[in-house]
Simulated scan of single mutants.
Amino acid sequence: MIFIYLILFPCIVRCEHIATHAVKEKPNLKNETAGPDVVDVKYFYETFCPKCIKFERQFENAINLLSTRLFIQTYPYGKSKITLKNGKVFIKCQHGRKECYGNKLHACVLKYFSNHTEAVLFNICMMHINGSNDATAKKCSQKFNVNVNPILKCAKGIEGVHLLKYYGEESRKANFERIPFVLVNGAHVRWNGSDFSRVLCGEFKQPPPNCSKISLRGIDNHNGTLGNGTKLMHYKNV
């Protein structure tokens, strides 16, 4: 169990809304990873939060290094708000309409990619290229060699709205106050800018070979200190 110390300031609130009629949609939650010594990672974020964008560079490195031993679930919703009125769904996003659409793009990628790890990396790609929108989706689709049209159609239509509604319901269950919000093996992790791969490697009973590339010297994941006594992490169940 991990709780990495950091004060994370919430993203600035600027809300808009979208609406449509109600249908039921759920994402593709299939994950390729299985086995007895797998670290579970749940990541709650929104597409235009600066701290989320910064964290995702570390997240991408961790995925590339350890993906075969990680069970990853991501939730592109953040601090958005959903209300239901007269059979319609209203969504308000912290960074306005552009973020509502970006969150829907991410949700649709998770639904339409057959490989979940690649879906997560595709979404990280969009966040790295100046925002999550149609242009970045098309650019990342060239990198990943996928047909982006079903994703764009999903994000522009009723399906994307209700995928976002699903992620909103899951995000409320996590009951977080700030983003990025990360759970590792069920414990809340507050990222402090340190190497996220290093944190994950400390969770394996038998670390995979790639962890040998990362210095774990001095980490004690059970008392929250480095070998020199500097406070790095402590734990809290949620």
Rank of each mutant, 00 (worst) to 15 (best):
M1R: 03
M1P: 11
F3R: 15
I4E: 13
Y5D: 14
I7R: 03
I7Y: 07
I12A: 04
I18F: 06
A19K: 15
E25G: 09
L29E: 15
A34Y: 15
G35I: 13
P36K: 15
V41N: 02
Y45V: 00
E46S: 04
P50Q: 08
K51G: 09
C52L: 09
C52G: 10
F55E: 03
F59T: 09
A62F: 03
I63C: 01
N64I: 12
L70K: 01
F71E: 14
Y75T: 00
I82L: 09
N86D: 15
N86C: 10
F90E: 14
K92P: 01
C93E: 02
G96A: 07
C100L: 13
K104M: 14
Y112H: 12
Y112M: 10
N115H: 08
T117K: 14
E118H: 06
A119N: 00
V120Y: 04
F122Q: 02
I124V: 15
H128Y: 01
S132K: 02
K138P: 01
K139D: 12
C140A: 02
S141F: 11
F144H: 07
N145I: 15
V146G: 00
V146M: 04
N147V: 12
N149V: 14
P150D: 01
I151T: 00
K153F: 09
G157N: 05
E159A: 10
V161F: 10
L164Y: 00
G168V: 13
E169M: 06
S171D: 13
S171H: 09
N175W: 01
V182S: 03
H188A: 10
V189W: 02
V189Y: 08
R190V: 09
W191M: 05
S194K: 09
D195L: 14
V199N: 06
C201Y: 09
E203K: 13
F204V: 02
P209H: 06
K213R: 12
R217G: 00
G224I: 06
T225S: 04
T225N: 06
L226T: 08
N228W: 08
K231Q: 15
K231H: 13
H234M: 11
K236Y: 13
